[in-house]
Nucleic acid binder design. Structure first.
Length: 466
DNA sequence: CCCCCTTTGAAGCTT
DNA sequence: AAGCTTCAAAGGGGG
């Protein structure tokens, strides 16, 4: 039952049958547990003195071999062959893209297709970490013991940390001096102080760090600008990323958290989490999880007639709120279950064409894009051949099973795998109709044959979304 | 201006 | 303890 239609499963081996064999046993260790501690919880903070310090370039250089030596090296989770995998960056050349072992971990040069919100003047070289990594550092310089920072959290003026509110970014600062930057921030800080609630953002997790780094590349390759689409692609790439690569991001994220905690010892995500919304009532199991979904996600584009009014107008979903939020209680008034229980997984689209026609409701032009054929020569995995199960989607490190004992270098304190995580990227049946679906999008995404890299623009077919 | 989409992971709250 | 919810980034799109 819960299996989405095979055609919607984006993850599969190039032989088209990922389920024919269990995922490699080596895919089991959360990369961020490399330090042998139960990571992922605040409890790890400060526990490991060495980890409390930023990695030196030499350390970064060591990271790879170390990981490999501890048995982490492994083939890509989704072993596309170089010729078949639609994402060039996931080809073996990927390791060059993310040059973690070099001081320029985050290629910031425009030529690399990256852009950074932080001035390149930041002393990246001092530690080998990217400027992004210093988002928590008030001075832009990372201290061996950032906890000794003279800047109390509430005085911090770092843009990435203290902002007037969530999802509010300062303008691109690539072309601004740090002083301008600071003034700007001071102004915003004053505003924030006025409210007496400076918004300290959450530290970025591994995936967010990865997204931040890779977004520009995906944008360049696909000439897509819609983040929703980009994120789907990035999600797929993330899954396809080798463990070693992911481990680096987990490590980065772990250090970000550490640094964040040291800079803002009193900060708690609670402040942000409870900022605006009340927590919602636990969903009714009988509703199969759909009660917590907004109409769009619950019914899909092909059933917009079931959407609540605000949803149709792209406003805040009232059912979503009713489902435990603001009304905090008894609802189930709204035939939520109709598509509901388990239904999410089996409300396969009936008419793609129609839904595409309806899809103008959102991320716009993509619906038109969806009807385009793939760029010539692009070898996309056949959806029909794709068979996958969410349980094999390796959606997260938690899904992995470790072949190693703790003595082998890992503290295998794996939390039990979540029963059935969200649909892995692209496995949501609704994706078939979703113009933003990975399958739809990646079908339009540029395929860069690794052998054709080096700026051979002629081989890049770009679908412009305008 | 606000909210939507969309992704994964972390953290905290709720049950 | 398990499950759930929110928020991190991003930027185009719609009302």
């Amino acid at each position: 039952m819960g299996l989405p239609p095979a055609g919607h499963m984006p993850f599969f081996c190039h032989n088209g049958d990922p389920l024919s064999q269990p995922p490699p046993a080596h895919m089991g260790i959360p990369p961020y547990q490399l330090d042998g501690k139960g990571a992922g919880s605040m409890g790890e903070y400060g526990v490991s003195p060495p980890a409390a310090q930023p990695l030196s370039p030499a350390e970064w250089r060591r990271l790879g071999p170390l990981l490999a030596a501890t048995g982490l090296s492994r083939p890509a989770m989704y072993p596309f062959s170089a010729g078949q995998y639609p994402y060039p960056m996931l080809s073996p050349e990927m390791s060059q893209v993310a040059s973690w072992h070099t001081p320029s971990m985050y290629p910031l040069s425009p030529g690399a297709g990256f852009r950074s919100p932080y001035p390149s003047s930041l002393p990246i070289s001092t530690s080998g970490l990217s400027s992004d990594f210093y988002r928590f550092s008030p001075t832009g310089l990372i201290q061996p013991h950032p906890g000794l920072s003279p800047h109390p959290p509430h005085l911090s003026s770092h843009p990435a940390i203290v902002t007037p509110g969530p999802k509010q970014e300062l303008p691109d600062m690539n072309h601004r001096s740090q002083m301008d930057h600071k003034n700007n921030i001071d102004a915003k800080n004053a505003e924030a102080n006025e409210k007496k609630k400076p918004h300290i953002k959450k530290p970025l997790n591994a995936f967010m760090l990865y997204m931040k780094e890779m977004r520009a590349k995906v944008v360049a390759e696909c000439t897509l600008k819609e983040s929703a689409a980009i994120n789907q692609i990035l999600g797929r790439r993330w899954h396809a990323l080798g463990r070693e690569e992911q481990a680096k991001y987990y490590e980065l994220a772990r250090r970000e958290r550490q640094l964040h905690m040291q800079l803002y010892p009193d900060w708690s995500s609670r402040a942000n989490a409870t900022r605006g919304k009340k927590r919602k009532r636990k969903q009714d199991p009988a509703e199969g999880g759909n009660s917590m979904k907004k109409c769009r996600a619950r019914y899909g584009l092909d059933q917009q007639n079931q959407w609540c009014k605000p949803c149709r107008r792209k406003k805040k979903c009232i059912r979503y709120m009713e489902s435990g939020g603001e009304n905090d209680g008894n609802q189930s008034d709204d035939n939520l279950g109709s598509c509901g229980s388990t239904g999410d997984a089996h409300t396969p689209p009936e008419d793609d064409t129609e839904s595409l026609n309806q899809s103008m409701s959102s991320p716009g032009g993509l619906s038109a894009l969806s009807s385009l054929t793939s760029p010539g020569g692009m070898v996309m995995p056949s959806p029909s051949a794709s068979v996958a199960s969410p349980s094999v989607s390796v959606a997260s490190p938690y899904m992995l099973q470790s072949p190693l004992t703790p003595h082998e270098g890992y503290d295998v304190k794996l939390p039990p795998p979540p029963p059935l995580p969200r649909h892995p990227v692209g496995t949501n049946p609704h994706d078939a109709n979703n113009p933003l679906s990975v399958n739809q999008l990646t079908g339009q995404c540029v395929r860069n044959d690794p052998s054709e890299t080096n700026g051979n623009k002629e081989t890049r077919s770009i679908i412009s979304v305008t």
